[in-house]
């Protein structure tokens, strides 16, 4: 299993850089992973998306559908791509530490 290291901290990740242990998430962890997804700085807007995804997951056990994410955060889909250039599935879900999205991807 690969590791991702930043500022002396080390995380166990899969080959796509998704954090393996679901138990260790906090805001500092999200910030560390932001650097891997072309997110230079975690702004309020970024946190709004990450926290929504994270809370939805904790409540329902799944990632919210994209249209629900847009509706609830008030961001249009292309604005979410501006915030997270690698997209909601790869970028935002990785920072919120959700299981890696699957399907014919």
């Amino acid at each position: 299993m690969a590791t991702f290291e930043v500022d002396g901290r080390s995380y166990e990740v899969d080959e796509d850089g998704f954090l393996q242990d679901p138990g260790i998430w906090n805001e500092a962890v999200a910030k560390d992973f932001a650097t891997t997804e072309s997110v230079a700085e975690m702004t309020e807007a970024h946190w709004k998306v990450v926290n929504y995804i994270r809370n939805y997951y904790l409540q329902f056990g799944i990632a919210p559908m994209v249209r629900k994410l847009c509706k609830e955060t008030g961001f249009k889909l292309n604005q979410i791509y501006e915030l997270f250039p690698s997209g909601p599935a790869k970028g935002a879900c990785k920072l919120a530490r959700l299981p890696k999205p699957t399907g014919c991807v």
Binding site: Q20, D21, P22, Y57, F60, G61, I62, P99, K100
Partner: peptide, 9 residues
């Protein structure tokens, strides 16, 4: 399973 799956899905 707990690491990589959305169980409801």
């Amino acid at each position: 399973v707990p690491k990589v799956c959305e169980v409801p899905t």
